[in-house]
Amino acid sequence: MELLRMIRIVLWSFFGVRRRAAHEADFAHVNFSLLPFVALALAALIGGGIFGIVLIVAHATGTVQGF
């Protein structure tokens, strides 16, 4: 359950909009030593997902044009 809480904290921080009360409630029960690793893993997953989508779209458009 703590891992899901940390994932939620990191995703909300990526989005950038959060109420102060919810922010303080989440940080009251989180392990700060693991939070940077969760943030880096999620950033890598999101970046890899975007990169994969771009590769799929670029490959699809390249075959449509006949190159």
Results as ranks from 00 to 15, higher is better:
48 G>P: 04
39 A>Y: 02
43 A>G: 08
47 G>M: 04
2 E>M: 02
65 Q>V: 08
11 L>Q: 14
19 R>Y: 12
63 T>P: 05
8 R>W: 04
21 A>W: 07
64 V>K: 05
2 E>G: 05
6 M>G: 03
45 L>A: 15
4 L>C: 11
34 L>G: 03
26 D>Y: 05
7 I>N: 12
41 A>N: 09
10 V>M: 03
5 R>S: 05
54 V>P: 00
27 F>E: 11
30 V>T: 10
65 Q>P: 07
36 P>G: 05
67 F>K: 06
5 R>V: 12
14 F>T: 02
1 M>S: 11
41 A>W: 06
29 H>P: 05
41 A>H: 08
47 G>I: 02
18 R>P: 07
5 R>N: 05
55 L>R: 09
18 R>C: 05
12 W>F: 14
44 A>S: 13
15 F>W: 14
41 A>K: 11
43 A>I: 10
57 V>D: 02
67 F>C: 06
59 H>R: 10
30 V>F: 00
4 L>P: 08
11 L>K: 15
53 I>A: 14
11 L>R: 15
59 H>V: 12
58 A>P: 05
27 F>I: 07
32 F>C: 10
11 L>W: 10
17 V>R: 03
42 L>R: 04
59 H>Y: 14
41 A>P: 06
39 A>D: 01
26 D>P: 03
2 E>H: 05
24 E>Q: 13
23 H>L: 12
6 M>F: 04
9 I>P: 03
28 A>K: 04
24 E>M: 12
46 I>Q: 10
50 I>E: 09
51 F>T: 01
35 L>V: 01
52 G>C: 13
6 M>D: 02
59 H>P: 09
66 G>K: 06
38 V>L: 03
34 L>Q: 06
8 R>L: 05
29 H>V: 07
66 G>E: 12
55 L>Y: 13
19 R>S: 15
10 V>H: 02
17 V>M: 02
60 A>H: 10
31 N>E: 03
54 V>A: 03
20 R>A: 13
14 F>I: 06
58 A>K: 14
33 S>T: 14
35 L>M: 04
32 F>S: 11
